[in-house]
């Protein structure tokens, strides 16, 4: 009996070894192939100077009509605004996807939970936020929100815009949650949902309301395109901030844990 067991173990081990050896060969082959590909790409790209740039020249006179002076923002929100709309939707989709997969305990969002399981070892707990952290957070977060607002607004004429502002807002949110994880339980989930949807919805609404001005989808009415863009940018920034925070949290607040404390 014992002998049989050890025999089986040995066989398993030898099989494992066989696999390991094969794995090593596979890995080498993969790396070699990648090296070949990369070398070829390197040769191809370096050999050939980039083609004549027609787009940049064609674009130059159009920037005036875009309503903003920053070329990147003009392309991002006006010329290729449709791409950006879909991109905002991708972010929304990520939030949606994560919410559909996982739930978190709203009283301690840094611990995963799921309907079938219960959190075992909370890895972040203590009597409350420490003093230094709390103070820092109290000073930093309003500042970050302020800077985020500025960045978003500045996007119209220089580097900046909704994504930069939104990223900062997201950073503020993450900081807040790290410092005071319990805080999230005080926010009603419906409000979070609203915050996530706000930016994409504004973008879509603005796009649709362009029909009312006789234009195509996302064709902002010509005088004052800038203010439309600003509206979109602020909406997007808020939603990006909230969505990034929810991405960090990694799940929807579990309603059961919100309501009943006696849940095992």
């Amino acid at each position: 009996m014992n002998g049989g067991l050890t025999g089986m173990k040995k066989r398993k081990q030898s099989m494992k070894g066989k696999f390991k050896r094969k794995d090593w060969q596979f890995a080498t082959l993969t790396s070699l192939l990648i090296a070949t590909l990369v070398t070829f790409l390197c040769w191809a790209i370096l050999k050939e100077p980039p083609g004549e740039d027609l787009t940049a020249e064609a674009l130059a006179p159009l920037f005036v009509q875009s309503g903003v002076t920053s070329p990147v923002t003009a392309i991002l929100l006006n010329f290729r605004g449709y791409d950006t709309l879909l991109e905002v939707m991708v972010l929304f989709l990520a939030g949606l996807g994560i919410w559909s997969q996982a739930t978190v305990d709203p009283t301690n969002p840094l611990v995963f939970s799921s309907p079938a399981t219960h959190p075992t070892k909370p890895n972040f707990h203590g009597p409350g936020p420490e003093l230094i952290l709390a103070t820092l957070v109290r000073i930093l977060i309003p500042l970050m929100v302020l800077v985020a607002g500025y960045l978003t607004w500045a996007g119209g004429f220089q580097a900046g815009g909704a994504f930069q502002g939104g990223a900062l807002l997201g950073g503020a949110g993450i900081l807040l949650i790290l410092a005071e994880p319990q805080r999230i339980s005080t926010i009603p989930p419906a409000l979070i949902r609203f915050g996530i949807v706000l930016g994409p919805a504004i973008f879509l609404l603005v796009g649709v309301s362009c029909f009312g001005y006789g234009g195509n989808f996302l064709q902002y009415p010509q005088p004052g395109a800038g203010s439309w863009l600003l509206l979109i940018e602020f909406g997007a920034a808020i939603s990006i901030g909230i969505t990034l925070t929810t991405l960090f949290v990694g799940g929807r607040p579990d309603p059961k844990r919100l309501k009943g404390t006696d849940q095992p």
Partner: peptide
């Protein structure tokens, strides 16, 4: 064809 945002290529989509 339908030009989104009213921009024909190469600027628009």
């Amino acid at each position: 064809e339908y030009a989104l945002g009213g921009w024909p290529p190469p600027a628009g989509i």
